[in-house]
Design a protein around this nucleic acid. Structure first.
Length: 855
RNA sequence: GCUCCGGUGGCGAAAUGGCAAACGCUGCGGACUUAAAAUCCGCUGGGAGUAAUCCCUUGUGGGUUCGAUUCCCACCCGGAGCACCA
């Protein structure tokens, strides 16, 4: 290509007739997009479907803040990029409007949330339009719409039918003064946030989903790259939450109430099953601990201990859930008076109860090995229980005389030996005081002892998960009623599907009160219904379902919002799902994403979905930091975007947000940087003006040509990897080069505008039109690059002497080592450091660097 | 306490084994202007020097390497998540 230069005017703005007025441009294109349905792909005939999903917002009264805008814009940039690459991009939006936040706010104002939410949604729509999102508004949804929650209820019924939903008693926080259930966040320092009364635990019957049945599959898929290409940080969080532990379930035979009876040959007492990850330490299990709620507590409690045991259980029940878990670390507990037999040693061990053992994990009972577990050690020390060493650290063999735990070999009774700390290494160490297993290393001992106990019917190797079943019951007003009817004759009867939705009645007294029943139960015309089976007067379930159930399937609904007779259309779903790219915050890395995966897995199993993992690619976005903390409503450091958009324009603001840091890491919000992107857009605006006036099919010079191909490569890669800040930097460099070289060629400027379009959509549309193009720029083609044209003919090579850069030499691209060494040795700056020294070694990196190592 | 992610100019950041500080902000100087704003041009990590140039610099200390912001080990600081998970 010839490199004739086209000279244009130096000062771009001075010659411009039409100034850049963002408010005019943005209003024009937002109206035109709506009019021409630019952002509404044909969902039935799309050739290259691309489902670009962003986590839908909860429509708060305050509106979207800058942190939310950052996230939405980043997702939108990606969607627009894919659209320009020729995909049929579906970018839906909706509102996650049920839940405790809305309800609490409504209670505060004394207005039913059903009246508040629509106003908030109006505001959210306005903000999301203003920022220029490529949303397909035809498919907007709200979880509070009966047309939506009808299918949330339907989903519950499918799970119930499939045996994946069940009812069981579980603890909740209970305020004794307000007579109502409290969410964990409503408990402040063990007190009710509204009335200040001390919160208690109460046990209620609640609905659960059997997500634990899927723990192994939920874990296995995380490693399957064909199903899930997710942010590393997110899969890690899920792994930790699932919390897989390999270990053993061991059986301790409860033999009665005295040590003497326990020693008897074969006892008939109840068995206690425990889960342990350290079966190798079973010889050191000197006592057992049951959770206070454990069903076997009564069986082990002796008459003389009963009063104390009862008192302890009472005191645990009177604590709220938060402070029981997070509260004081000082170990508490009481002795039941009962004993059980250690299956390894045959010795009786006392059975205690303590709140540091949780009913929800494992079997709700543990074998306590105080020598090798920190908590058991603290407990043993406090209550004077035996501590036995059964694993010796690998390094203690050398200084036998010094280690206090090593003195134990001398025959002293284990309890008499002072032990300063538990040795808790899960992998290293050698067994002692363990009979035939002495001398084995920990990993071997785990296998050997488990096998040995299994043979004697006292244990088996099992895998345990931290994950609990998903409690979906909420004793609240603002959610979809759980579609179940209680009949005296037939028990819990599912509402027939034809009767869905069970409408949430619009009531004035939605506030909880001291009557002790749900607000819904006070509305008799709603509460009492005929049993679907026998027709006799029955009662509705008054719990509503968890908001996470609403959001666990919304991505299935979007493509099918116009179908009233099915939750998701099979054909649409086959075409558009699983979601191609999902972007959202890592605060939902665990619950929302896990629940969504669970729902997809179950529906897949039921033959209702053709896939089991709903999100093919997931990327967690970063967070905007303000004053050293993540921007959030709860922290009170939010910045409202509206005034920025008004002052600078949406396109400038979008670019600023995307430029301030890597999208997946977030960045610091400071208003003093917004002018940079705006100045950049002004320059581009002027450049287009120059091009329109002066371009006559001018040739592009070499420098601009190289920069152009480099820029296309860099911007494309940056967008694909969500490194938007470097893409924008590359565009800025490109413009700097064009201006420095005075080449306002149409061809080059068109590429520039297309690459700018994902970031500044209205601006790009307007300039596309100024350049005389018809239709939307988003139907244009993303530019390509030629790798050969990204490089210069000559390269500058850094010349180092012993690793320090001393000079640079310019050589033809691809020059060989000999040529470069020769050039370097001519260089005075290099010679100064090599003179009189022997070059011991030469390191040459073609086209980059030469290192002469001197001796 | 455990897990993960970070720490680079005055500020946001770039470079992930090969010329540290691209791009932008701020600041300073100049041009234009009666003036200001806007715009344009130049400089802007620290130190020494008239200068060419040299020395130092990516949280701290060590290591690997011809060469380390990048890899390894230990520590310090900040952020996020989990939190008595047996």
């Amino acid at each position: 290509m010839k490199t004739t230069e086209t000279r244009v005017k130096q000062n771009p703005t001075s010659t411009d007739v039409v100034p850049y007025q963002p408010e005019v441009v943005e209003a024009k294109w937002q109206a035109r997009w709506a009019e021409r349905r630019t952002n509404e792909p044909d969902l039935d005939r799309a050739q290259r479907p691309f489902y670009n999903l962003m986590m839908f917002p909860y429509p708060s009264a305050e509106g979207l803040h800058v942190g939310n805008m950052f996230a939405f814009t980043g997702s939108d940039v990606y969607g627009r990029f894919k659209r320009l690459q020729g995909y049929d991009v579906f970018e839906p939006i909706g509102f996650d409007a049920f839940g405790i936040h809305s309800e609490n706010y409504a209670i505060k104002l004394g207005i039913n949330p059903a009246e508040l939410i629509p106003q908030n949604i109006v505001n959210f729509r306005r903000q999301l339009r203003n920022i220029g999102g490529m949303f397909d508004w035809r498919h907007e949804l709200s979880t509070t719409d009966p047309k939506y929650y009808k299918w949330t209820q339907w989903l519950f019924l499918q799970l119930l039918k499939a045996g994946k939903a069940y009812k069981k008693a579980a603890a909740v926080n209970w305020c004794p003064r307000d007579q109502t259930v409290l969410a964990n966040e409503q408990v402040i320092d063990g007190r009710c946030e509204r009335c200040g009364a001390t919160v208690e635990q109460r046990t209620l019957e609640q609905w659960f989903f059997r997500i634990t049945e899927y723990a192994d599959r939920l874990l296995a898929d995380l490693d399957d790259k064909t199903k899930m290409d997710w942010s590393e940080s997110t899969t890690l969080a899920q792994r930790n939450w699932l919390g897989r532990s390999e270990g053993a379930e061991l059986v301790f035979n409860g033999a009665g109430v005295t040590p003497r009876e326990a020693r008897g040959p074969k006892s008939n007492g109840p068995e206690i099953k425990v889960f342990t990850t350290r079966p190798d330490t079973v010889f050191g299990a000197t006592f057992m601990v049951l959770a206070p709620e454990h069903p076997l507590v009564d069986a082990f409690t002796t008459p003389d201990c009963r009063a104390e045991v009862e008192a302890y259980r009472q005191s645990m029940a009177s604590k709220d859930l938060v402070s029981r878990k997070v509260g004081e670390r000082e170990k508490t507990g009481v002795f039941t008076g009962g004993y059980a037999v250690n299956p390894a040693t045959g010795n009786p061990v006392p059975v205690w109860i303590a709140d540091y053992v949780l009913m929800e994990y494992g079997t709700g009972a543990i074998m306590a090995v105080p020598g090798h577990d920190q908590r058991d050690f603290e407990f043993a020390r406090k209550f004077g229980l035996d501590v036995v060493e059964v694993v010796r650290p690998p390094d203690s063999s050398g200084d036998e005389g010094l280690s206090p735990r090593a003195q134990r070999g001398g025959g002293a009774s284990p309890a008499d030996v002072p032990v300063e700390a538990a040795y808790v290494d899960n992998e290293r160490g050698v067994l002692v005081n363990s009979g035939q297993f002495d001398g084995l290393k920990v990993p071997e001992a785990k296998r050997a002892i488990t096998a040995w106990l299994a043979e004697r019917g006292a244990g088996k190797a099992i895998v345990n998960y931290r994950l609990h079943d998903w409690c979906i019951s909420r004793q609240r007003y603002w959610g979809p009623p759980i579609p179940v009817i209680y009949c005296d004759e037939h028990g819990a009867v599912p509402v027939p599907e034809k009767d869905l939705p069970v409408l949430l009645p619009l009531i004035d007294d939605f506030q909880p009160d001291d009557s002790g029943v749900s607000p819904l139960a006070r509305h008799e015309e709603w509460y009492y219904v005929p049993c679907p089976v026998c027709g006799r007067r029955s009662r509705r379930e008054t719990d509503v379902s968890d908001t996470f159930l609403d959001s666990a399937w919304y991505y299935l609904r979007y493509p099918s919002t116009e179908f009233d007779d099915r939750p998701f259309d099979q054909e649409r779903t086959r075409k558009w799902l699983p979601v191609t790219t999902y972007i959202g915050g890592n605060e939902h890395a665990v619950l929302h994403l896990l629940y969504s995966r669970f729902v997809s897995m179950v529906l897949h199993e039921l033959g209702l979905l053709h896939f089991d993992e709903p999100f093919k690619k997931f990327r967690a976005h970063g967070h905007i930091v303000k004053d050293g903390a993540k921007m959030s409503k709860s922290r009170g450091n939010v910045v409202v975007p509206d005034e920025y958009i008004q002052r600078w324009g949406a396109d400038t603001f979008r670019m600023y947000l995307m430029f301030l840091g890597p999208f997946q890491e977030g960045g610091d919000f400071r208003d003093d940087g917004v002018s940079g992107p705006r100045r950049f857009l002004d320059k581009v605006w002027a450049l287009v003006g120059d091009t329109i006036r002066d371009d006559n099919g001018a040739e592009i010079n070499h420098a601009v040509q190289v920069k152009r191909h480099q820029t296309v490569r860099k911007v494309t890669a940056g967008l694909e990897e969500l490194h938007y800040n470097t893409s924008i930097a590359a565009l800025m460099e490109f413009v700097n080069t064009i201006r420095a070289e005075n080449v306002a060629s149409r061809e080059v400027v068109e590429d520039l505008i297309v690459m700018l379009a994902p970031f500044a959509p209205h601006f790009a549309e307007e300039n596309w039109e100024r350049l005389g193009k018809e239709g939307s720029i988003f139907d244009a083609e993303w530019p390509g690059w030629d790798e050969r044209l990204t490089v210069e003919d000559t390269v500058e090579i850094a010349v180092q002497v012993s690793g320090k850069t001393r000079s640079r030499v310019t050589v033809p691209r691809g020059a060989d080592e000999k040529t470069v060494v020769a050039a370097a040795q001519q260089d005075a700056g290099v010679r100064r450091f090599t003179e009189g020294k022997e070059v011991r070694k030469v390191v040459y990196v073609p086209n980059r660097l030469l290192n002469l190592v001197v001796g």
